[in-house]
Design a protein around this nucleic acid. Sequence first.
DNA 1: GTGACACCTGGAGCGCGCTCCAGGTCAAGG
DNA 2: CCTTGACCTGGAGCGCGCTCCAGGTGTCAC
Lengths: 126, 126
Amino acid sequence: MTQTLSPAQVVERSGFSLDTLRYYERIGLLDGIGRSASGHRRFSQDHLEWLGVLRCLRDTGMPIAEMCRYAESARGGSRTMAERLALLTAHEERVERHIAELRAQQDHLREKIAWYREQLADTDQS
Amino acid sequence: MTQTLSPAQVVERSGFSLDTLRYYERIGLLDGIGRSASGHRRFSQDHLEWLGVLRCLRDTGMPIAEMCRYAESARGGSRTMAERLALLTAHEERVERHIAELRAQQDHLREKIAWYREQLADTDQS
DNA sequence: GTGACACCTGGAGCGCGCTCCAGGTCAAGG
DNA sequence: CCTTGACCTGGAGCGCGCTCCAGGTGTCAC
């Protein structure tokens, strides 16, 4: 008998708001959520792990529509593993490019900061 | 006599759309844009350089409201340099943290990808 | 002069990802 | 019993950053 988690517990452990969890359920990013007699959601440990995956995808900038495709594929079981692998691989490459872009712009930022520091040093001095 | 640039030229060289340029002017991110006799915008080389700065800030995730504060400060001349330095420094630190976060999540992504590859290899084999 | 074209203005609309709200149910504590 | 609090539902609303639109003007090639 696996322990179930209340909405409040999932909010705390996943870092998603209750509204976001409900939203994710509505759009199909979460499914198979049980209900207590009184209609309250009962999450499983698997849901919590899946939320970890969603967080990873979300925080790396995957659009929700694509997460939905991934979720849909995950419902297909082992038959659709290749598809999921392809989705993740493509995403990982985008993340890689995004990081490279950020680093390049960060360099510009640092140059500008160095320039400002220099200006201020010169000004103080005169 | 510095050459001026037409809207189309600025679109091409800055990578911002014409609508975005107009929007940026409206909200005060761009100012001092000249006009031709017929009312068409005439950008200067300085505007183009400033757009490069805006692109850097935007692409590293600075919210527009904060870019506006930076632009406002830039209008203050050398008197407000320290303020701009502080803004950029704080932003650069956020970018640094963001990159670190992305890399961490990218690692999770890669682990998951490796796991899928392994599963698929095992399946093929059996 | 007649298109085509680049541009103008003010203002409405959009896509995303939530977030909030009204009105209600159930369970436990005092 | 009555309140408090966690949760439910369907649906409206929001903040951001643009993007699009209608209706108009000036310039140039034919």
